[in-house]
């Protein structure tokens, strides 16, 4: 799980060009949307593509997206439960 969380942080930073954020500073339980990270709707689309491309997992409903994309930990838990 810890490895998956670190990989996710690296991928999110790279894909979303979060230039001013490092893996160490990226809180596992930090809110991705509406918090300090400050992601927006375009980032949500990028995250959907990232999960499908790198993990073969599809997010098909808005409700699922809201739950899964809360924090890096919720994404990792979702991926673990959909292995």
């Amino acid at each position: 799980m810890e490895n998956l969380i670190e990989d996710l942080k690296k991928q999110i930073i790279e894909e979303l060009n979060l230039e001013d954020l490092t893996v160490e500073e990226f809180g596992t339980d930090e809110l991705l949307f509406g918090g300090n990270i400050g992601l927006d709707s375009i980032d949500a689309l990028e995250l959907i593509v990232l999960l499908e491309k790198n993990y073969g997992v599809k997010i098909t409903s808005k409700e699922d997206g809201k739950k899964v994309f809360q924090t890096v930990r919720t994404i990792a838990e979702f991926l673990e439960s959909n292995k």
Partner: peptide
């Protein structure tokens, strides 16, 4: 690269 699937929205926008 992705054979016309999984296109990133940002570059297109």
């Amino acid at each position: 690269e992705n054979e016309e699937t999984l296109l990133n929205p940002t570059a297109f926008i």
